[in-house]
Design a protein around this nucleic acid. Structure first.
Lengths: 256, 256
DNA sequence: CCAAAAGTGTTTAAAATACACCCATGC
DNA sequence: GCATGGGTGTATTTTAAACACTTTTGG
């Protein structure tokens, strides 16, 4: 098969293109139907889900590598991404994952750079859910969104990476334009509140939340309301990006 | 010379022991005489100061590597260290630094792993100043403390790394036992306040600071006072480590 | 006795919290 | 017409900020 050839090539010659020992794993967050979700790939042969990941080209900036890796999975350019932690357990290894796989492709451990030790740089990515077209890579049979509260078993230490990413998202909420990157251009106040509640993992008071957010001046209220709801129609809002960024410099004051 | 042999060995065979393409740079903070200081090495031949750094052994955890690297520079074991950022500019390179040096040792670019591209993991370290014995390594002619406000020119992107470390220290002050690791076992309230003021880079009100810190319950006041001062003698305090750690979980509420 | 820095409390302003009723829409 | 969730304001508590005089010590 064609992808088998591509995979063999990657295992046998990848180290000519990429930096050895370093991988990138991405935790891609999206928000839809008032649920925070994460994009996962189903790793062939390994039989488990995994975070999308990849490697750094020899002359490429790490941030560029992260963007390139995700552009292929999501169809998006210029994704908002932040490195958040380096995972360096010497025992984290692609070996155990790929035993079956190895046999199929016919590569032995000492033939491939892929079975050397790797440290992995964790990146969080924030995307506009509705603009993403999930695409599996050659190592994967599927690419899907999962609710943050219903994550399946993951390979390697990917669960640990995901948990750390969530923790990082919580501390970033005061200093990074998380709402701007996760929500569509127009959104309602209750949607914004659900997003904050999901990330902070606690209920917020409607009235106090509204007052606080309005008080920061980061929103522009539109005349338009959300149609097709069977209750009072909520207004749409947009972000005032300049004021948002100004406000983030001083922190937004949401403690977890 | 003996160290020349050691250096040649490192350049020519280091990749057999260490992971290629990955280095660690440490920003070591100490506090003394009410000044926040950083430990720097004077790089031979390069003629500039540099952060202490090193590499990861092939089967070593990255945190262990960071600790090993600093143990050799400071004489301390179990140093409190945190990774804070990865620096990955493809143009950051040891090449330009070591031209002169190379000639002296007689190694050409393509002979050594040390001239390949490196990404560097930045670590902050917090140490008890008075317990450190600065020791230069084979690449360095000196190892000294510098006041954070009087940093000399540094090689490569080390100034950027240092600045980012300081920024990171500021955000960590609410969630990490920074005082505990930077101060000696016994310390006075004004010393603690200077530490906070230096890190946050702003003046704090004495009375409000004292009330806030006492209110967290993280301190034990001793009967003993600091001798030999030509004014009213301040009391010594110790940290109540259990309460300190409990308080840090919820954040200490010092905003920068 | 004087300079230098430490100890201590109260008042005021700002921010966070708690809480309840009316309104618009789809079914 | 009713169930669902959205919109809105006020009172209370908590937390942060501003501020000045007295005390101790070494020189």
């Amino acid at each position: 098969m064609d992808f088998d050839r591509e995979i063999r090539e990657h295992y046998l010659r990848g180290h000519e293109k990429f930096l050895r020992h370093i991988s990138i794993d991405c935790v891609v967050f999206g928000f839809f139907n008032n649920e925070l979700r994460v994009l996962l790939l189903h790793a062939k042969y390994a039989g488990h889900w995994a975070l999308p990941g990849g490697f750094i080209l020899k002359e490429e900036h790490m941030d560029a590598a992260a963007n390139r890796i995700l552009a292929e999975r999501t169809g998006l350019e210029k994704i908002y991404m932040q490195q958040f932690y380096v995972f360096s357990e010497p025992t984290r290894s692609t070996r155990k994952v790929n035993q079956q796989f190895l046999q199929n492709v016919g590569i032995s451990y000492d033939e491939s750079w892929m079975f050397e030790r790797f440290i992995s740089i964790g990146y969080t990515a924030l995307v506009n859910f509705s603009k993403v077209q999930p695409v599996a890579d050659v190592f994967s049979s599927a690419c899907e969104w999962f609710n943050i509260h219903a994550i399946p078993e993951l390979i390697l230490d990917h669960r640990e990476i995901l948990d750390k990413a969530l923790e990082s998202l919580r501390t970033q909420i005061n200093y990074h334009p998380i709402g701007f990157n996760l929500l569509p251009e127009k959104f309602t106040m209750p949607e914004l509140q659900r997003l904050y509640e999901t990330i902070l993992d606690r209920k917020l008071d409607r009235r106090n939340f509204q007052r606080k957010i309005i008080g920061t001046g980061i929103l522009k209220k539109l005349k338009e309301t959300k149609p097709g709801v069977r209750h009072k129609a909520p207004f749409y809002y947009k972000f005032d990006l300049k004021k948002y960024q100004r406000a983030l410099k001083g922190g937004m004051g949401f403690e977890s």
